[in-house]
Structure formats: C-alpha cells, structure tokens
C-alpha cells in the first residue's frame, strides 16, 4: 500500500519538478548570464565536465547586468507600467460589461439560466485565435464597423480603430468576459433576494438597495472575476500583437520580440523573471481570497 502511494506521488511530482520547476530555475540562471553569438546564445554555461573549479568559475561570471539594463532603459519600465495600466483598465471595463450581464442571467428562469450559462461557456472552448481574429475584420479601416459608421453618415472617412489601444481593450474584454461573468453569476445566483426587499421596505431606493446590499454580497464574485481577468491580461501577447499593432507596449510582446527578433535570451529571461515577480503579488492575493471564501463556506 505504501509503495503504491509512493509511486502515485512520485510520478506527477517528478514530471512537474523536471518540466516546470527546473525550467523556471534555468530561466532565472540564464537571466544572470550575458548574450553571446554561439549555441546556446548565452554565457557562461554550466558543464559537468569542468568539475568544481569550472562550476565556481562560471558562478563568478554571472552578473546582474540584465537587470541593471532593464532598470536603466526606460522602454522596459514603460512596457511594465503600461501592461499593468492596460490590464487594470481592461479589468474594470470587463467588470462593467460583465456585471449587468451576470445580474440579468441570475434573474432568468431556471431553464433560461441553463441555456445562458451554456452560451457563456461556449466561447471559452472556441479557439482564442479565431475569436481575436474575428475582430480584425470588424475594426479595420475597411471593416464592418467603419462601413456601418459611414453608411449612417456618422463619419466621412474611416476612423482608425485597429492597431490602437482601443482595439486592445476590446480584445481583452471580449476574450476574458466569460471569466468575469461566471464567478459573478455564481455569487449573484445564490443570493437571497428577500434581503433586497427588506432594504427597500426599510426605505432604501432601488439603486441604493443595489449599492448597499447586492454589490457587497457579490463582492467575492467581483474579486474572483477581476483577478481572473487581470492576471492573464498583464502577460497577454496575442491581443496586443494582432489588434494593438505597435500602438501600445506590453511586456508579453516585448519578451516575445526580445527572444525571437533580437535573440537576446538572457535579457528575455530577465524580463520573464521580473514579470513573474510582478505577478506574485496579485496571485498570492487571489489565492488568499479564495482560501478565505472556502473557509467561510466550510463554517456555514
């Protein structure tokens, strides 16, 4: 029995250590080396053949230069800041779009609710690329939206929408809306409406009752939904590249280009390490809030 248990633990543990933990460690190590024109394109490398002396020598040649460069070159700082800014704004916008939707869904009849829930989950399973692609044809200068605007006489010439920050926001809201709606719906659906009625009986207006009763009670859903949008949006690469063009620096894109176009692997690794450090705070906060909710559930 114990042997069985040991094997059960060992196999997935070993896989995740080798293919998830070790690579992260290697990325960290390479972020401390410098770029050279060779294969692999970084130095120093740690070889077992050189023994302990070789190891110590390689260790002494590791530097923090890449990190110093990241701080000194304003491009990277700008990219980090604008990623956080875009992710933050997009999260708020997604909440504003998602909340009324989830609220309306929670008030539908049980049968309709099942159908609506299915319709929210369906896009999540549809190809991300296809969904982002669908917006190129809508937002481009000759696209659907501009044709519509010109047909209605709202504008004479096309309005530039593709390759602007606007398109990035649309893309993020569109791609991550289900992640926002699902947790919101989950909290709104099990909410006791008599609390709202009680508030209104006691003299609250409808908007005030919504603001003082419904919103605080749905806070767990708001928190979960916001984290589920914010965390992936920071490192997003596909949306800023396909919809944003060169209009906005985002760190996921910078990392990609540093790696594939400039082939500066150590710098790309350093960018990744900093991005990871940037994400640790929201991720830990998210985990905490989830645990808090779980404990509350258990106490009930």
């Amino acid at each position: 029995m114990n042997k069985r248990r040991a094997i059960l633990i060992f196999i997935p543990f070993a896989w995740l250590l080798i293919f998830f933990a070790v690579p992260l460690f290697m990325a960290f190590k390479i972020s401390l080396s410098h770029s050279v024109t060779a294969i692999p394109p970084y130095a120093p490398t740690f070889g077992l053949s050189e023994g302990w002396a070789g190891f110590k020598d390689a260790l002494s040649r590791l530097t923090l230069d890449n990190y110093r460069f990241l701080i000194s070159d304003s491009l990277y700082l700008k990219a980090y800041l604008s990623s956080v800014g875009v992710a933050l704004k997009a999260t708020i916008l997604t909440l504003l779009v998602g909340y009324p939707m989830a609220y309306g869904m929670a008030r539908a009849t049980p049968q309709t609710r099942m159908v609506l829930l299915f319709l929210v989950i369906l896009p999540f399973w549809t190809s991300f690329l296809v969904r982002i692609y669908s917006w190129i044809g809508i937002l481009s200068n000759e696209g659907m939206l501009n044709q519509l605007f010109m047909f209605l006489g709202l504008t004479d010439g096309p309005i530039k929408m593709l390759n602007t920050p606007f398109a990035i926001y649309i893309g993020i809201i569109y791609a991550y809306l289900p992640f926002m709606v699902l947790p919101l719906y989950a909290t709104l659906e099990k909410m006791d409406l008599s609390l709202n009625e009680a508030a209104m009986d006691l003299g609250c207006s409808r908007p005030k009752a919504f603001w003082l009763v419904t919103v605080p009670l749905s806070l767990p859903g708001i928190v979960a939904g916001c984290f589920l949008v914010f965390i992936p949006a920071i490192g997003e690469f596909v949306i800023p590249t396909l919809l944003g063009g060169s209009s906005k620096l985002m760190i996921g894109k910078v990392l990609f280009e540093e790696f594939f176009s400039n082939r500066d692997w150590p710098l790309a690794a350093a960018v990744a390490v900093v991005l990871l450090l940037l994400l640790v705070v929201p991720i830990v906060l998210f985990q905490r809030s989830q645990e808090f909710e779980q404990n509350k559930e258990l106490q009930r």
């Binding site: 009324p100 309306g104 008030r107 539908a108 009849t109 319709l119 929210v120 569109y174 289900p178």
Partner: peptide, 24 residues
C-alpha cells in the same frame, strides 16, 4: 432568487450576448 427579468435585465443580457456572438 426571484425569476422576474426586468427590461433592464433583458437588455443587458441581450447586449452582452450580442457582443460575445456577433463577431463570430
């Protein structure tokens, strides 16, 4: 939860799903 959808609820759900599905 009460199962009465006001016209505001209906409108927001309709707009939300249009946003999700019209591009596709």
């Amino acid at each position: 939860m009460n199962t009465q959808m006001s016209w505001v609820n209906k409108l927001s759900v309709t707009l939300g799903f249009m946003f999700l599905y019209v591009p596709m």
